[in-house]
Design a protein around this nucleic acid. Structure first.
Length: 462
RNA sequence: GUGGCUAUGGUGUAGUGGCAGCACGAGAGUCUGUGGAACUCUUAGCGAGGGUUCGAAUCCCUCUAGCCACCCCA
């Protein structure tokens, strides 16, 4: 009887309990990184560092100097520069809520650099001014592989020169960075010229005229593009529309004399440098500020047509932001997309040490602290676990590190002013006077077993 | 923004409505000055919320996140 009654109440209680217990976690929303953003853990950071370091070597050599701009900029900067129609300005910017001025998280790098150039009057320096950056950018897109809401770009800009030599240098630098990252074989440069405002206007007229005759056969997107952004017609992947690309007018036929000469010079230089490229008449870029040269870097082998980078000339950009007109050319690489490729080629590991220092007891620990400092100053990489007390544990840790040698300092050794040097492979150990240990370690470091410090190659493994 | 697929400890996985299991990892110990092996113990999970049900990791809905295809882009 009682059971039955209980049974009835049981459910109520259970439901009630469920509700009360569930109200708490309800409030505690699981806290995680915002959508499309991620933590960079130490192992991943190796790749970011590699990209930056590799690029830095090339860029510094060519006189490009590193800068940084604020994470926030006025929305107007991007709306004016990259164009109202572009999705980036249109719907992908993060607006900062409680700012009097309309501030946004920067969605791209070139406009801020142009702003910096004007604001700091860098046009007074000898031209061109060559700058580069390695910074995170933010776009409110739906995340996907190789597409994040916060992502790093490595960009380089040469401002204040309209010479095609600078276009070529930017492309050369881009190419060299990729080669040094081990991606050289896979690079395909897609190259095109979209002229200046004059010839573009002319070209668009012919392009729309061409497409209009097929307008009822085009996909919905393309019909929209026809009105808003005709250049993008060439980008469409819809099978119905692709057909018309072939017969579409080629921009290169509509370039004005100036733009044609510029493009020709650029190609001559690239040919002379043996930099291979594919002319792609369908290549147009998403940002309004581009003029003349535009390029994209595809990493050939896989079919994912995600570009790892791109760039081009933007002779009109500075004018749209400031009161003066200066030409410029630049490029940007998507760091996460690069890393994706690098990971297919090689795995990075942390610098490995060959020596582990073990200490037993307070005095020995103090001696260990001192010895570590001495080793650091002598550029000998020694691992430790100073928080550990027992010899066993420390040996186990040493073993996990895979070191070939351990130094053991205990009470007795401190008193005798010696240390024990143990060969982890043979298990043999010898007593070394404290004064001589650095010298001995150096000897080990030169041996084949030990890996040299401060050598990039030690970071790579196959 | 549109459409599709997915979600189990830190990692990899088993579990088709009936006690959430295994492996790796991590920590401690067997062993207080000698590691790798073995053994023991510990650690930690059904993404969140709701619904159906006597009972849900399992079925349904919503949300969240990831992946994929678009849009667009690096």
């Amino acid at each position: 009887m009682a059971n039955k009654v209980q049974g009835v109440f049981k459910k109520k209680d259970r439901v009630a309990a469920k509700k009360t217990t569930s109200t708490k976690p309800n409030k505690w929303i699981k806290i995680q990184t915002p959508r499309g953003m991620k933590d960079i853990l130490p192992e991943a950071m190796l790749y970011y560092d590699l990209v930056l370091k590799t690029a830095q070597n090339v860029l510094n050599y060519y006189g490009y100097q590193k800068i940084e701009t604020p994470v926030l900029e006025k929305a107007e900067l991007f709306i004016r520069s990259i164009g109202k129609e572009s999705d980036i300005a249109h719907k992908e910017m993060y607006f900062v809520k409680n700012s009097e001025e309309q501030l946004v998280l920067r969605p791209e790098g070139t406009a801020p650099v142009a702003r910096l150039y004007i604001e700091n009057a860098l046009f007074n320096l000898s031209q061109p001014v060559k700058l580069y950056y390695f910074l995170p950018f933010f776009r409110h897109e739906k995340p996907q592989a190789g597409r994040y809401r916060q992502f790093y770009q490595l960009g380089a800009e040469a401002l204040g020169s309209d010479s095609p030599a600078l276009d070529a240098q930017i492309i050369l630098i881009t190419s060299e960075i990729l080669i040094e990252l081990g991606l050289g074989k896979d690079i395909v440069f897609k190259l095109n010229s979209i002229g200046c405002q004059k010839c573009r206007h002319n070209y668009i007229k012919h392009l729309t005229k061409y497409y209009k005759q097929y307008s009822n056969k085009l996909c919905n997107d393309c019909r929209r593009r026809l009105k808003l952004n005709p250049l993008r017609l060439l980008d469409c992947k819809d099978e119905h529309c692709v057909v018309f690309k072939e017969g579409a007018p080629n921009f290169l036929d509509y370039l004005c004399d100036d733009c044609r000469a510029h493009f020709k010079k650029l190609l001559e230089i690239l040919d002379g440098l043996n930099i291979s490229y594919n002319l792609d008449k369908t290549l147009v870029r998403g940002l309004d500020y581009y003029t003349k040269t535009v390029f994209e870097i595809m990493l050939g082998s896989d079919q994912t047509d995600l570009a790892v980078g791109g760039g081009g000339r933007y002779d009109g950009l500075i004018e749209t932001i400031g009161r003066l007109s200066r030409p410029g050319v630049g490029m940007a690489l998507g760091v996460e997309r690069l890393i994706e490729q690098i990971k297919n080629k090689k795995r990075l590991t942390f610098p490995k040490s060959d020596i582990f220092l073990i200490q037993l007891g307070d005095q020995a620990r103090l001696a260990a602290f001192k010895l570590l400092e001495e080793c650091r100053k002598n550029k000998i990489l020694v691992r430790e676990s100073l928080g550990q007390e027992s010899l066993k544990n420390q040996l186990r840790i040493a073993n996990n590190y895979g070191v070939n040698y351990t130094i053991i300092i205990g009470q007795e050794e401190v008193i005798n002013d010696v240390v024990i040097l143990k060969d982890m492979n043979s298990g043999l150990q010898e007593i070394v006077p404290s004064k001589k240990i650095i010298e001995v370690l150096r000897g080990l470091n030169k041996s084949a077993l030990a890996k040299p410090l401060n050598d990039d190659s030690s970071v790579f493994k196959e």
